[in-house]
Amino acid sequence: MQTEKKITEIAGDEHDNQTSSTFVIEGEGHTLGNILKNIISNYADVQFCGYTLPHPVENKIHFRIQSTGKTKAIEILKRGLEDIKFICDTVLETPM
């Protein structure tokens, strides 16, 4: 499992300096897709963010990020994942 790549990128966005990308995330669905999209789409430097589950039996999502032009899409994706980690840490730190 570990040797297989989880994230790949769809070709077609080579002209704009990596500020727009569509990532294919293997093994993930609405669970991660929706929370990631909701966090990323409200960033100030994001023009568009959306995801789709291309086929219900294929366990992968297409995750599209278009930045306003200054940031690389991959950096925004990383920031989104870091923010979800931060949310999880905050929840875990709170005593139950």
Partner: peptide
């Protein structure tokens, strides 16, 4: 708690690869 940890782990795996 396990669910929260699972979500965190998902992000960790993806971040590590990126």
């Amino acid at each position: 708690i396990l669910a929260v940890k699972t979500l965190k782990n998902k992000c960790d795996v993806l971040l590590e690869e990126l």
